[in-house]
Design a protein around this nucleic acid. Structure first.
Lengths: 344, 344
DNA sequence: TTGTATGCGTTATCAC
DNA sequence: GTGATAACGCATACAA
């Protein structure tokens, strides 16, 4: 049968002290006599006592619950984030409560606020693209809630954000593609109301310009980060009279769409067309040819976010962590890119 | 500034009743006068009041927290489950706390029990392969915790389990492959200490036997559900003198590995080799050729599990839900399978 | 139908 | 250093 778990009162009684004193040792107060401390510690161990989070929360208005807010179709990304966060927070006594939501919903803010309030969530980590919402961030701040955003642009106090430098990564991508010899390049963007889409496009375009090549605006088409829209974009680009010899797609999902269309059109990849994506999704290494892409250190970013949110909740800022906020994704070269074949 | 949120006392005062009465309407008691009910309901709406879960839990020894326990590499599966569960549980006032763990760890049971106790989790949903652990299930039962297992075998009281009939699904797969004309078939299993692996193999083999074809044991190799082991299995099978004209792999990840090897060996798929997988992973529809596979109604299973766990927690069994426990996956035919080409 | 009183397991405010 | 005792917000015997 399930023994009912010991309470602070049990510990106090066994140790022959008041529960206030037990509370002190639990919370690491210094004002406890050394022998009292040891005695109580022993009893705690013997009884396998651990404080009840709910009662604790009721009294201190904390829940030891962290929330994860997102609306992201990429399951792999979510999973990596969850594990990265848990790596840190579970060892600090926090649990992770997940909260998928609809970024484009009109009651996004209300929905998230309600989520936090209902369960007294101590702090939330917000993932892109939800993290790009000014409204949500403002509401969170306004309501006095702790939060950390994961994003691709530096749009908040560094205490509250972890950003991946996707602009720099895309610059690297541009250099790489140019180094292969490509001059005629197509680009399928993400939704242009996402900062991340803009960042990636800008990083790529600016570098192309610097390299004296430039990006033909007729070969920039807007996608929706979906497989289908990747195919649509590819259809457009590959029907062009002077079709590109390389296409970058804003994520791997769309890049897979491009690959599919190339295959349908009998265009060989990478011989006749180089393709690159972004995310290093599970797809990237599995499809044939495997996909050149950009990998973000998602787990590390998530862990950093967890550190920050816990600091924020506990108002115990460690400068080194507080200052750190930028991580750099890197290029992964696989089979889908190569030098263009000379045509006529 | 953050208004402090209204309590039951605020509502009671505003409505001019005792908090006991407010409590009644919150909990849907019938013993409340109609006008009192409406009045209180109005005040609740006006104040945007919602009961504090922690306090509520402290008083009723419930947390309104559901746990999700798993150790599954398939992020897509996890994501689908999470959304399926949340679909149900969030509308019933529960939140979902995630708990990835190590199935093969020696302290799996202790770890999970500790997780539940720490946060007073009301009930847990356990995913395969962790759900196959007899020890964990026993410990959960022993400790008096509510749980629901998602599995591929009917190994618990129907109140506590949702099973996908993978045996039947694999029978369907076998019929399909045979209907294409294949007689020489290879099979890469999952880890054979998993029930699910056994079920799939048995379902397939039994049907082949029924159809008078049988499965050559020399062409059954054990994989680990990983991409690499799929490649290893394919290497073995495809080097055989009479190499199979069709290979089934226990999951899509391994099937992708098979496809990769076939590609390396210059074996055309599906012309010279048919390949099928299991899961309908995101991979399945993206790779070229797209993969014939089995799709489990994961979201529906998860929702059912959520219903069951909530019933279990609230001790409010609805017969129709209690009896329902079996769901049937179905075959999805794509490009990777076809009739074998006649050889010499 | 409605209200009173008590307890849930902590933390925190005081005194001693 | 230590200990009564009052919150915290709600549920629930028990009355009325």
């Amino acid at each position: 049968m399930s023994e009912k778990k010991p309470t602070i009162n049990d510990v106090a009684r066994e140790a022959g002290v008041s529960k206030r004193t037990v509370s002190r040792v639990i919370n690491g107060s210094t004002n406890v006599g050394p022998k009292t401390l040891e005695l109580i510690q022993q009893v705690i161990d013997r009884l396998d006592y651990s404080p009840d989070k709910q009662a604790r929360g009721l009294a201190s208005s904390r829940s030891y619950l962290l929330g994860l807010i997102y609306d992201n179709p990429d399951a792999l990304y979510i999973d990596q984030v969850q594990r990265g966060v848990l790596n840190i927070c579970s060892s600090k006594g926090y649990e992770l409560v997940v909260h998928p939501c609809k970024y484009n919903s009109t009651d996004l803010v209300k929905n998230c606020l309600s989520f936090i309030r209902r369960s007294n969530i101590d702090g939330v980590i917000v993932l892109p693209p939800v993290s790009e919402s000014k409204d949500l961030a403002a509401a969170l701040r306004e309501a006095g809630h702790c939060y950390v955003r994961m994003a691709s642009v530096d749009l908040d106090d560094h205490t509250n954000i972890v950003v991946s430098d996707e602009r720099a990564a895309m610059s690297e991508m541009a250099r790489y593609i140019v180094s292969l010899g490509h001059k005629n390049i197509g680009f399928i963007t993400g939704p242009l109301n996402y900062y991340s889409s803009i960042e990636r496009l800008e990083g790529f375009r600016n570098t192309l310009v610097q390299l004296g090549i430039g990006l033909d605006e007729a070969k920039v088409v807007e996608g929706q980060n979906s497989y289908q829209s990747g195919q649509d974009g590819a259809q457009q680009l590959l029907q062009l009279a002077d079709r590109p010899s390389a296409i970058f797609a804003n994520n791997d999902e769309m890049a897979a769409g491009v690959l599919r269309v190339a295959h349908q059109l009998g265009i060989k990849v990478p011989e006749q067309l180089s393709i690159a994506g972004f995310d290093d999704n599970i797809l990237a290494s599995r499809i044939i040819p495997s996909l050149t892409t950009i990998q973000r250190p998602v787990g590390a970013m998530a862990s950093l976010a967890a550190h920050k949110i816990i600091q924020s909740v506990e108002k115990n800022i460690v400068e080194s962590v507080d200052k750190e906020f930028l991580v750099k994704p890197h290029l992964i070269i696989r089979e889908s890119t190569s030098a263009p074949t000379a045509v006529d």
